[in-house]
Amino acid sequence: MAAETPALVLEERAPVSLAQRVKDARLPWVPITILLIIVFCAAFANLVAPHDPRANDVRNKLQPPFASSEHVLGTDRLGKDMLSRLIFGARTMLQVTAPSIIVAILAGTIVGLVSGYSGRWADSVLMRITDAVLGFPSILVALLIVTYLGTGVWNVMIAIAATQWARFARMIRGEVLAIRDRDFVVLAQIYGVSPGMIVYRHLFPNVINTLMVLTSVSVGQVILLEASLSFLGLGLAPGDPAWGILVAEGREFLTQAWWIALFPGLVITVVVMAFNFFGDWLRDYLDPRLRRAG
């Protein structure tokens, strides 16, 4: 008998080192580097930026880029340094998008969990509302909200959150529907665990992967929406360092100062691309099943 026991012992795997795991993950280094630079610029804007983004320097107004070492990316009509405004723009972007997307995730997750787990009328009511929000282009919904609440950063943040939560709710509900009849949930119910506890302890941990993937895929969309709203003049005041506003200011100097519009837009494009690539990677890494859904 003793001779048979080794067959039951699983082959022991060598512990995988962290370095090896990082290597196996095939991390997308270019997008990650770009995103780290953006976060760094946002965090230490006052140290990184060569000038005050709001300081006028009228003697050096409308300087072309790469002409002087003092203003590498040129200046605008009041002599504000473009590079500094771009760097502070990263901070503005994070300050506006991060809170709104967090609120959207919280609201969407709660609605999705409740809707998926409770079923019946609560589910149909919540999903009708979700579909109605999803059914309209976000910019229309955002404009409606800004009309009645007025322009300003806070209202833009509310508008972004109000248009984005629905995607999270839909996705989380789908995940919950897929797992709520699995054995561990049914057993917990039989054992008498309260519904709140089941949602918190058994359902929520199982949707975290989906949540992370959806978040990283949505961030790019949110940045574009925020930039569009700033561009349309609904968010921050003119003169504030936001990328969308910079492009809008450049619009007035199309022929004289092309650089004012060019650089901020380029930065937005690169950042959104980086988020999209990172999101694609995360989706493939965490959950290959989702590959087709995108």
Binding site: V247, A248, G265, M273
Partner: peptide, 18 residues
Amino acid sequence: AVFGMAAPQFWVAIMLII
């Protein structure tokens, strides 16, 4: 395709106008 999905419409519009 990747560029088309990431570039803000208002910016592309302005660049094309320029």
